[in-house]
């Protein structure tokens, strides 16, 4: 029974693993391009395990941003997980402490979405199911990072094969994924203008904190939207 649940989770996570694989490889290649060794890239995928924030991390590291700001940015990009873990609390309360430790470590966007969906349908959210779903995404993520990093090591000039354009477009795609959120356009407009101004007048890497702060302050100052929700507003696609 427990084994069946594990494999049910594996089957559920399999298509998500396939979708995330190119991003694992992309991360590996870009990490090496930004001054990581292959081992560093694999280590980051295995310990941080959050695609978008890993990309942000290597981008800032490559630009010699101060370490505290790199960590803060990783924290900021991953902040949505606070909402996820609050939201699935009701479904995983029966896990043991050790099981919770692993469960929250593996809590990526699709894991959250599936757990929530399963719980709402009244299906049991068991630890074997959760683990099967999580591990079938986790281990290939590390393996694809390794493949990408080895490939990245072989590339001489990343510009000649167009690698340099991938990160900004990737981030642009992530930004667009948030477009259903309240006040999306004003926040993005203010952050865009403030970050370009910050780049121009203060210089990199400060444009990141200046631009981000401007958008966040705007969101806090605008009158609250009519529909105030306590659960996560949107499920963003990881990677």
């Amino acid at each position: 029974m427990r084994k069946d649940e594990f494999w049910e989770g594996v089957r559920g996570g399999f298509p998500i693993m396939l979708a995330a694989s190119p991003f694992g490889a992309l991360f590996g290649a870009l990490a090496v391009d930004n001054g990581f060794t292959i081992a560093d890239a694999v280590f980051m995928s295995a310990t941080v395990y959050a695609g978008a924030s890993q990309m942000v991390g290597i981008e800032l590291f490559g630009n010699n941003v101060q370490p505290w700001l790199v960590v803060l940015s990783v924290f900021a990009v991953n902040f949505r997980h606070v909402l996820y873990s609050a939201s699935i609390a009701k479904h995983v309360r029966h896990f043991t402490l050790v099981q919770k430790f692993f469960a929250f470590f593996l809590l990526v966007d699709p894991q959250y979405a599936e757990t929530e969906k399963r719980g709402e349908r009244g299906l049991p959210v068991t630890f074997p199911w959760y683990l099967g779903f999580g591990l079938v995404i986790y281990f290939p993520w590390i393996f694809n990072t390794l493949l990408g990093a080895i490939f990245g090591q072989l590339i001489g000039d990343p510009k000649a094969i167009g690698l340099d354009v991938l990160l900004p477009i990737y981030f642009l795609g992530l930004v667009m994924g948030f477009r259903k959120r309240d006040r999306f356009l004003p926040i993005v407009a203010v952050s865009a203008v403030a970050s370009v101004a910050g780049m121009h007048f203060v210089g990199s890497p400060w444009h990141v904190s200046i631009g981000a702060l401007a958008g966040i302050l705007l969101a806090a100052c605008l009158p609250p939207a009519e529909t105030v929700t306590t659960t996560p507003v949107a499920i963003e696609k990881e990677a």
């Binding site: 926040i187 865009a192 990199s204 981000a212």
Partner: peptide
């Protein structure tokens, strides 16, 4: 509510700062 609005804005605001300067 204001804290929630601010938290909601964090990902778009942070990621935009990595997009706009690259574009310009």
């Amino acid at each position: 509510p204001r804290l929630e609005s601010a938290l909601n804005a964090v990902p778009a605001a942070v990621l935009t700062t990595l997009v706009a300067p690259a574009f310009v």
